[in-house]
Design a binder for these strands. Structure first.
Length: 942
RNA sequence: GCCGGGGUAGCCGAGUGGUCAAAGGCGUGAGGUUUAAGCCCUUAUCUCAAUGAGUUCGCAGGUUCGAAUCCUGCCCCCGGCACCA
């Protein structure tokens, strides 16, 4: 009985793995390498199910690859800078450093309890000065190369978090962390010139194995658009207005120019004019508004005339210059040429302010060039009404090209590619991050801290319960002398965005203990790229863009050779659990409401699967589950419950079911080793079947189909063994050959139990975690036939069971015997001919004429045979799978196979006798040969 | 609005032209085992007058000897972006 078995001593096995250092990755000679990585976690004190899922997936891959002979780099560390620790210090006192270290210790213990196969020597933590020193060093290099810049610019400010945010960290106008409103603020801030890598970041996506939706997300964010920069003169002034457009083909329809109210020229144009007050009102309204509100407001087109006119670059006509609330200062050039006829926004604006609308495209060739415009026609079209010769009639790209060529010839513009992505704002007005290594000197400006003075360490003498950046409260930190002139100076108190930390940690892992450089180039080059990267989809645009940018930037500093950090990216699905749901209100509620009516509408609640979260109260503690069922069960459940990329529903019942499987497996070796049966023909079947399973397993693992792999190792093999035993198998020698490899298969997902098998039952030495798995040679023909024959018996049994209910209804009593009528030879011959014909590429329709000529179709049964082909055999030849087809083609004697198994079949069906006859032979008195088919005998009960 | 991903039996979910009435799991029914329950094993689980036939893979058409799978149109769900010029 399974409950009498000792539970697996998981902690004991973990200790042995550590003692024997089996997971310490090093490059050994010429073995291939494999870099398996999970997104390193923020060290909250507790491991949650999302972590467990993430690492169970990665660990399975790492263990599999290790067993297949790779040097596997599989590290773990902590993204330990960031706001939660600092906020805790502000509200509860204490120091972020202490709480972070405490939390790290506790989450590390929980992670270790799962038995993941990390090389813990390489652990890194962002807040370690030995790590963030290199952030600072990179930063000073970037300054030297013009990649890092300080600019006074409007930036996103989150009041609640008391810091600025990168564009990527603003979601729908709100802060990605606290969901508070984000305002625009003009500040001096540090930026990294990510847009200069936009094209590379865009093109690189085609060289790596990211999921399509992640690529599309990144491309959206980079926002490539092709078009032209066009310069308009200003009547009576020297300055030019440069606009960006994707539609140069509509240039002749530009009846005004619109500037963002914050455009640098705006003030110059209106200062001291009657328009100044109106402009200022618009400017102030727009500039102070949070972006969220501004976008909401943009529906209402608001504009102010500047009092000036621009000069159309090709016609020389004067067109008015307006300021519009819908023009975004930070995109393109902050100015647009307005073509009301062919742009919806411009149409609305022109209509509101009574500006002329001039059609320059028609949507159909030869369309009416003077047709009135009731709305903007924004599709590509044929040029009309061009004031210059040579344009009318041109369409689409040709039209764009012609206009661009004219602009380039006149030096009033040129083709260009514009990117939506902005420079990466990395300044944060917070304490718990990497100090930006700069000293501000009145004379010398912003001076980078020399390499010899790095790292600039975070001071301990700060006060957290203050308004503003706690770093400013440390005089020892703030007061510094200028590295270049020695004068009194002030140290930069901005720290770096924590995404800086996570943008290169994967490089650090390759050489984590190096104190002389961030990583040795030769070592990093050997391990990179990351072959398998597993983490949440929420990082698809921030972390995964920054890390790709950083890799390219470090490459250009000569620090590493790779162009891309990650090859295969797997975004694991959410862990969900049911929570109360009100269908009428469409709200998911906390589990507190279970069984109660909806608090909003008082209707009855149903339940729905929802992401595990504190607010829903539907979280499940991994610790509690491990304590109850063990780490192996939790891992098995998590891998088996859903494909890695799919969302999975946590179910206690399913977890318990998986636990039962684990208990069953726990007792498996004893059962197998207790086999005492002698050799049977089934032994060869069992070995062939298991060989087939090994192949299926490795194929599933190679495509990271972990669910299928687990299904094979933990479910299918048991079924195979059950069948083997049912068929009279039970040879201990077979068990002895099978058990070691089976241990290896289960070790990928349930490594602790696998060690018990490997060490206590299989005649093996060492640890299964350090073993190597050989893929056996493919099955030979004899083995294929063996498997097919057995499959045939299973199919016949299944069919016999289905038919029996009906048959007994006809008989009016229980059946006591059955006759299996095997298809007559001519049907098999027919099938073989047809299969051969089709295998040669023949069309199914043509086989009828071939058949008419075949010897088997001659004679008085010709009509019957031709009819049988069309009605019965034609659909059937396509239904057979490859294995069945080869059985049909081979000369497996169905009657013989069934005869050998007739006692078994009789026993399975609880019948006294089972007779086997060939249809249409003298022995066949059933008259049922007509319904037979190769591999599908008629079953006649009596 | 644009871009991606989806819609498969009571539920979850595999399935990219024939191996599909559709894997596997969960749930449910039956039998075996058991003192009993559980575990475990076997078996059933779209409909009907049942060795057959019919109808099913969001909806409606189409291509094909053959469609869950390919094509066209439509509906719905999820994610992202969004007056981005």
């Amino acid at each position: 009985m399974s409950s009498e078995l000792e539970p697996v001593d998981e902690v004991g096995w973990q200790k042995r793995w550590t003692d024997e250092r089996v997971f310490e990755a090093d490059l050994r000679g010429d073995r291939p390498k494999f870099y398996c990585l999970e997104m390193y976690p923020y060290p909250s004190g507790k491991m949650h199910m999302g972590h467990v899922r993430n690492y169970s997936i990665g660990d399975a891959v790492a263990r599999y690859k290790r067993m297949r002979g790779f040097d596997v780099l599989y590290p773990m560390g902590y993204d330990s800078f960031g706001m939660p620790a600092e906020n805790a210090a502000i509200s509860e006192g204490g120091h972020p450093h202490d709480s972070t270290e405490r939390n790290m210790a506790s989450i590390t213990a929980q992670i270790k309890r799962m038995g993941f196969s990390y090389d813990w020597r390489r652990t890194l933590k962002s807040h370690d000065p030995r790590y963030y020193k290199w952030n600072q060093w990179f930063f000073t290099k970037f300054m030297e190369n013009g990649l890092a810049r300080r600019e006074h610019a409007p930036v996103n400010w989150c009041e609640a978090c008391n810091t600025v945010l990168a564009n990527e960290q603003v979601k729908a106008g709100r802060c990605w962390r606290c969901n508070g409103p984000v305002e625009q603020k003009e500040m001096n801030q540090w930026f990294l010139d990510l847009p200069s890598y936009a094209q590379q970041l865009h093109d690189g996506l085609d060289t790596i194995a990211f999921p399509e939706h992640v690529k599309s997300l990144q491309k959206d964010w980079l926002g490539r658009s092709e078009g032209a920069n066009i310069r308009f003169g200003i009547v009576g002034r020297e300055e030019k207005i440069e606009v960006f457009t994707t539609r140069p083909d509509t240039l002749f329809g530009a009846t005004f120019v619109t500037l963002a109210p914050e455009h640098p020229l705006a003030r110059l144009l209106v200062e001291g004019t009657p328009q100044e007050a109106e402009w200022r009102a618009l400017h102030d309204e727009v500039a102070s508004m949070s972006e969220f509100d501004r976008i909401k407001n943009m529906n209402k087109k608001q504009g102010v005339f500047s009092g000036h006119h621009a000069v159309h670059p090709l016609t020389g006509n004067a067109v008015p210059i307006w300021f519009g609330n819908f023009v975004i200062a930070s995109y393109g050039t902050g100015a647009v040429m307005a073509v009301p006829a062919h742009d919806e926004r411009d149409f609305d604006f022109a209509t509101a302010y009574d500006i002329p609308i001039r059609r320059v495209l028609v949507m159909k060739e030869g369309g009416d060039a003077d047709a009135p415009m009731n709305q903007a026609e924004t599709d590509l079209g044929y040029m009309v009404n061009s004031p210059l010769d040579g344009f009318d009639g041109l369409y689409g790209q040709a039209a764009k090209d012609a206009v661009c060529a004219a602009l380039e010839a006149a030096n009033h513009g040129e083709r260009t590619v514009n990117w939506k992505v902005r420079p990466w704002l990395i300044s944060r007005q917070r304490y718990w991050g990497t100090p930006i290594p700069v000293i501000h000197c009145k004379e010398c400006g912003a001076v980078p801290v020399p390499e010899s003075d790095l790292p600039v360490e975070l001071p301990r003498d700060v006060v957290f319960a203050v308004e503003g950046n706690p770093l400013e409260t440390s005089p020892t930190f703030v007061n510094a002398s200028c590295p270049s002139c020695g004068a009194e100076a002030r140290r930069e108190t901005d720290t770096m965005d924590t995404f800086m930390d996570s943008s290169w940690y994967f490089l650090r892992y390759t050489d984590a203990l190096n104190d002389d450089e961030p990583f040795a180039k030769a070592i990093a080059d050997r391990w990179m790229m990351v072959d398998f990267y597993c983490g949440g989809i929420e990082h698809a645009q921030m972390h995964l863009i920054y890390a790709r940018f950083m890799t390219k930037a470090l490459r250009d500093l000569g620090l590493v050779d790779v162009d891309e950090p990650f090859n295969e990216l797997l975004c694991q699905g959410m862990v969900n659990k049911s929570a109360p749901f009100c269908a009428d209100c469409g709200v998911t509620l906390s589990v507190d409401h279970e069984g109660a009516p909806c608090p909003h509408c008082h209707g009855e609640l149903t339940s729905r699967s929802a992401k595990m979260s504190k607010s829903h109260g539907n979280t499940v503690s991994p610790e509690a589950m491990i304590e109850r069922f063990g780490a192996d069960t939790v891992r098995l459940f998590i891998l088996f419950a859903a494909n890695p990329t799919a969302g999975m529903d946590w179910s206690d019942a399913a977890l318990e079911a998986n636990h039962r499987v684990m208990l069953q497996l726990r007792s498996m070796p004893e059962q197998l080793m207790a086999w005492t049966a002698s050799d049977t023909p089934m032994d060869a079947w069992m070995e062939a079947r298991f060989t087939q399973r090994i192949h299926e397993f490795t194929e599933a693992m190679e495509r990271y189909d972990l669910r299928r792999a687990v299904e094979i190792s933990h479910y299918e093999v048991i079924k195979d063994i059950n069948w083997y035993v049912r068929r009279g198998g039970g040879n201990r020698a077979v068990a002895e050959r099978l058990l070691p490899i089976w241990s290896q298969l289960i070790s990928v997902s349930t490594p602790h139990l696998a060690e018990v098998w490997w060490n206590d039952h299989a005649a093996t030495t060492g640890l299964v975690a350090a073993s190597s798995l050989e893929v056996p040679t493919p099955l030979d023909d004899d083995q294929q036939v063996l498997l097919a024959g057995e499959q045939y018996i299973r199919d016949v049994l299944e069919q016999a069971r289905k038919v029996r209910v009906v048959a007994e209804r006809h008989l009016g009593q229980s059946a006591t015997s059955a006759t299996l009528v095997v298809a007559p030879d001519w049907k098999r011959t027919l099938a073989q001919s047809a299969l051969a014909f089709l295998a040669d590429g023949g069309h199914p329709k043509q086989f009828m004429s071939v058949l008419q000529e075949l010897p088997l179709a001659q004679g008085e049964r010709k009509g019957e045979i031709l009819g049988f082909w069309g009605k019965k055999m034609l659909p059937q030849v396509f239904k057979w799978d490859d294995a069945s087809k080869s059985v049909v083609i081979s000369s497996m004697d169905e009657a013989l196979v069934l005869s050998h198994a007739s006692d078994f079949v009789a026993a399975e069906l609880g019948l006294a006798t089972v007779n086997i006859v060939v249809g249409e032979s003298d022995a066949d008195t059933t008259g049922r040969a007509g319904s037979t088919m190769p591999l599908s005998p008629a079953i006649v009960y009596a």
